[in-house]
């Protein structure tokens, strides 16, 4: 029903004259560009080959690198990335729309810095890429979705933690799991989906009527959990049925299992959730039997046994009663 109405509505939009010319122009532009690229590449390759020969002969030690895009990296950029000094660590860089490197990740300040040490304007970032040298010393790269960059990464494809540099969501921390192929957003409180994610989280009723969070990894080898976990309580909200009603929160961080004050959340309609950090339990009351309670978690952090931290976000349905 909706599809037909939508189609009718969209169909009202008038089509102007000249679209076929627009298509032709677009295709011609692509064809001309391709011709230009081929010419330039031949030129650059020829020059670089001559230069390389001279450099090797002179023993100057300046290195040109040819990345997978077929573009010769300028020596200055190569140096800026640190590869000239022999580092083999991956380097995250910000590229402008023209393809030049405008910044490099500074892991200490968790920001992108230009060659002169200034913070890069996120609006100027067109693409982020991670570059590294492979075992043959060749420069490799992988593009990162616009707006994100790597803070921690395992090149074998385990989880990454990204900070969003998109101008609209600047500074938000998001999680990228290539296995799950999606991003999570702290701002929106979404992330892993229980139907497809790496972890299942549920509230289980204990014998004394309390509830406790249970984290069940689907792959224990990949996500070995430690006992400690933490969460950001003001990000915990819940809603009944199909509507979202915040249960409130205090804004502080708590470490489950290590003591700290209890967090009481009240939806103002008789529903209550009490999170007891000391005993790592959650007490839920005031909801009907078999009533669905959606628990939404943000910034729940789990410390993994390998020392890394995995952040969780998402919505889980818990059956009460």
């Amino acid at each position: 029903m909706m599809k037909d109405e939508l189609r009718e509505a969209v169909g009202i939009i008038e089509i102007p004259e000249g679209l076929s010319e627009d298509i032709e122009k677009g295709v011609l532009r692509a064809m001309e560009e391709k011709q230009h690229e081929i010419k330039m590449l031949r030129k650059i390759t020829a020059v670089a080959a001559i230069f390389m020969a001279a450099v090797i002969a002179a023993g100057a030690g300046i290195i040109f690198a040819r990345n997978g895009r077929g573009v010769i990296q300028r020596a200055a950029e190569y140096k800026f990335m640190g590869f000239r000094t022999g580092t083999t660590e991956p380097v995250v860089v910000a590229l402008s729309e023209e393809g030049s490197i405008i910044g490099k990740l500074d892991a200490d300040s968790v920001s992108l810095k230009s060659e002169t040490g200034e913070t890069v304007d996120p609006d100027g970032i067109f693409l982020l890429s991670t570059y590294w040298l492979d075992e043959n010393g060749d420069l490799q790269f992988t593009d990162i979705p616009v707006g994100g960059y790597l803070v921690e990464t395992d090149l074998d494809g385990s989880s990454y933690e990204l900070i969003n540099f998109n101008s609209d969501d600047f500074g938000d921390r998001i999680i990228f799991d290539p296995a799950a192929s999606f991003l999570g957003s702290e701002e929106e409180g979404t992330g892993y989906d229980t139907s497809e994610g790496e972890l299942e989280i549920s509230l289980e009723k204990t014998s004394d009527g309390q509830y406790s969070f249970v984290f069940t990894p689907k792959d224990e080898e990949k996500y070995p959990f430690s006992e400690a976990s933490e969460y950001h309580p003001d990000a915990i909200s819940g809603f009944k049925g199909e509507s979202l009603e915040s249960l409130g929160g205090s804004g502080a961080s708590y470490l489950l299992g290590t003591g700290g004050p209890k967090l009481e959340l009240d939806d103002g309609k008789g529903g209550k959730m009490i999170i007891d950090n000391e005993n790592n339990t959650v007490e839920i009351s005031g909801f009907g039997q078999d009533e669905k309670l959606w628990v939404r978690l943000r910034s729940v952090g789990l410390l993994l046994k390998n020392g890394k931290r995995l952040e969780l976000h998402g919505n889980w349905v818990v059956k009460v009663g």
Binding site: P16, G18, L19, D22, I23, K25, G26, V27, R29, A30, M31, E33, K34
Partner: peptide
């Protein structure tokens, strides 16, 4: 906006062909 929308058609043709 008509003109911007036409630009999108052109740009899309460009990117698709490329």
């Amino acid at each position: 906006n008509r003109e911007d929308s036409r630009d999108v058609v052109q740009e899309t043709a460009y990117r698709c062909f490329k």
